[in-house]
Amino acid sequence: MTTPMVKFDNVTKSYGTLTVLDSLNLEIAPNEKVAIIGPSGSGKTTVLRMLMTLERINDGVIYVDGDPLTHMQKNGKLVPADERYLRKVRGNIGMVFQHFNLFPHMSAMKNCMEAPIHVLGLSKKEAAERAAELLDMVGLGDKKDQYPSQLSGGQQQRVAIARALAMRPKVMLFDEVTSALDPELVGEVLNVIRKLGTEHNLTMLMVTHQMGFAREFADRVCFFYGGKIAEAGKPDEIFNEPKEERTRQFLSAVLEAN
């Protein structure tokens, strides 16, 4: 049995009295592609944000590649992680956001070079080579010197993917990455993700509303409802013969809207 790349062990997240995630247990194998679906407010984005350390967890432990993410071993006990330890483990994870969050004052190239230079300590030349290679990979080789405001939403999102990949993460998180895009731009971003899935060894976790894509791309689909995984399984099982009534309702509502 291999170590799971990501493991949520009884993780709970709440804001005051509102419990967003209720003792979540989830293991994701290396290289596995997991799609997270569910109605809004079901806690699916929170899963990614906790893993990226953008949200503190209230209880439980998250493990990344066997190491606890939010806690560290000290005298045989798990204590909350300090900043230094957090940064070490966090380096394994990359994230792409719904609203791209590119740095508006930097060109596409500089966006992809910033963290490799200042965080990984790459030389300017190495970082530039890596950035150029990745921008080529996402099909933006001719837009390297453009600023985010000069790019379409789809292009910006592809730069954001290249920027995250430049840090060489083992786990990539995609948080509704096509939700802010015009419909005709969704395809180009999904194509890049598809390509990543086949050409790179990456564990991927994506929150998505693109049911067609989830079905075709994911190894496993998790349906979140009310802060819990209501149902999980292979895409065919979830989409063709959902066991839970809530899953069925959600899927029919989504398909109807399309």
Binding site: M52, H99, A115, V119
Partner: peptide, 27 residues
């Protein structure tokens, strides 16, 4: 400066002082 800029810097594993200096203050 939009929150997303901070979040992007965290996702790129940048220490806070670095994101402040290179990402937030210039904007």
């Amino acid at each position: 400066v939009p929150r997303g800029q901070w979040e992007a810097s965290v996702a790129l594993n940048m220490p806070r002082a670095l994101s402040l200096r290179r990402i937030i203050l210039p904007q």
